[in-house]
Amino acid sequence: MTTTVAAGTRTGRSLVTDVEFDMLAAFCVDEYGLERCVADRVVDQALALVFVMGSTGGGDAMAPSQQVDPGWHALILHTNWYADWCEKNFGSFLHHQPNSKVRTHGLMASVVEKIRVAGFTVDDRLWGTAAQCNAPTCCGDGPCC
């Protein structure tokens, strides 16, 4: 699947200051061993996901991919910052309700579509939606997607 970026598309990174983004990406590097270029992509997608979840109230029907989840953890683990960010953007704290068993190719495609509809750039490689699923070797977070 090719990502089409419409004019005026925004990034998750645009939702925070450069200093905040650096804090979150550096945490992913230190805590999860990600290369900085990967950490930047992961945090960008996590910010877009959480923003869409919080601003649409659709969090119950959304979940991060396995690759994006460390980005959300980076947000959550900076608790004071995250609480303030949520209050500013949504008027309340957006809780993380882990449920990795729901990560299917269909759900990831649905989440990606919601993020795109909200005007964000999507990195399909981090969502398992970069290629068609070829069961049984590839579903959801599979390595070939």
Rank of each mutant, 00 (worst) to 15 (best):
G12P: 12
F93D: 03
A25P: 01
H95D: 04
V122M: 08
N99M: 08
T2L: 08
H73C: 05
H96S: 01
R10N: 04
A130M: 08
D124A: 15
P98F: 03
G91M: 05
S100K: 13
R36H: 10
V111R: 00
A25T: 14
H95R: 13
S65R: 13
N99H: 09
G12K: 08
R36P: 10
G140S: 07
Q132P: 12
G58V: 07
P136F: 00
L94Y: 02
T129H: 03
G12N: 11
G119P: 13
V29N: 02
S65W: 12
L94I: 10
E113G: 01
V52R: 05
D18G: 14
W81C: 05
N99K: 13
L47V: 14
Y82C: 11
R116S: 07
Q66M: 11
T79W: 00
G54Y: 11
D69Q: 09
V43D: 05
C86W: 03
A130R: 03
C37R: 08
W85A: 09
R41E: 04
A118D: 06
W72R: 14
A135Y: 05
V117K: 11
D22Y: 00
M23A: 12
T79D: 10
C28Y: 01
P143S: 04
C133K: 07
C139A: 11
K101P: 00
A135I: 07
P64C: 02
V38S: 04
T2K: 15
D124W: 02
E20C: 09
D18P: 14
A39D: 05
G59F: 13
E87R: 14
Y32G: 00
N134W: 00
E87Y: 12
R10V: 15
A39P: 12
W72M: 05
F27P: 02
G59C: 11
Q45A: 13
R116E: 07
A109G: 07
G57I: 13
T121G: 01
T2V: 12
M53F: 10
Q97E: 13
T11I: 05
V29G: 06
R116Y: 02
A48Q: 11
D30I: 07
S110F: 09
L126G: 05
G119L: 12
L107Y: 03
W85N: 02
V19W: 01
V19H: 03
Q97F: 14
T9M: 11
A63S: 12
C86T: 05
L49W: 15
M23I: 06
L49Q: 08
L24T: 04
R125K: 14
Q97G: 01
A7Y: 06
D40I: 12
G142R: 02
R103T: 11
D40S: 13
A25L: 01
S65M: 05
L34H: 10
V50P: 11
A6E: 15
F27R: 08
D60M: 06
C139M: 02
F27Q: 08
I76M: 01
D40A: 12
T9F: 15
F21V: 04
L107T: 05
N89Q: 13
T17Y: 09
P143Q: 01
T121D: 08
E20Y: 04
F21E: 02
C139S: 11
M53S: 10
W81I: 09
E20G: 01
C144F: 10
V111Y: 01
T4F: 14
D60Q: 08
A135W: 05
G71W: 04
V122L: 10
T79G: 00
V112E: 01
